[in-house]
Amino acid sequence: MSDFEAVAKQFVEYYYKTFDTDRTALAPLYADNSMLTFEAAPVQGATGIVQKLLDLPFKQVQHQVATLDAQPSSPETGGIIVVVSGALLVEEEKRPMSYCQTFQLMPRDGSYYVFNDVFRLVYPAA
């Protein structure tokens, strides 16, 4: 029962790599019942979530993961809770912003999707 950690690591790596290169490719990671809470703004459903992420006021972005931890949130359903903290570098902004993001992963068709995604900047932008 330790492969949830491998799943979490793989997921985080893939998620941010995709986010930083092509946000539209994140759509398959969400489902219709997925919920994103981005800086207090809630969005439900894969389409809305990806649109929200595309509408963010930056084109170039880079996530630098500092910590990553995971726990099996629900052995019955196979859910995994993943907590990431790190830095967000946006375009010409030299000073990184700190963020904290919690993902609730749920199994689906032999893989996982993001059921809950709570993103929060924890250190101001300027």
């Binding site: 981005f38 207090a40 703004a41 929200k52 509408d55 006021p57 912003m97 900047l121 101001p124 932008a125």
Partner: peptide, 9 residues
């Protein structure tokens, strides 16, 4: 500060 990254448009 919350609007720092919020959808501007």
């Amino acid at each position: 500060n919350i609007e720092a990254l919020s959808d501007a448009t």
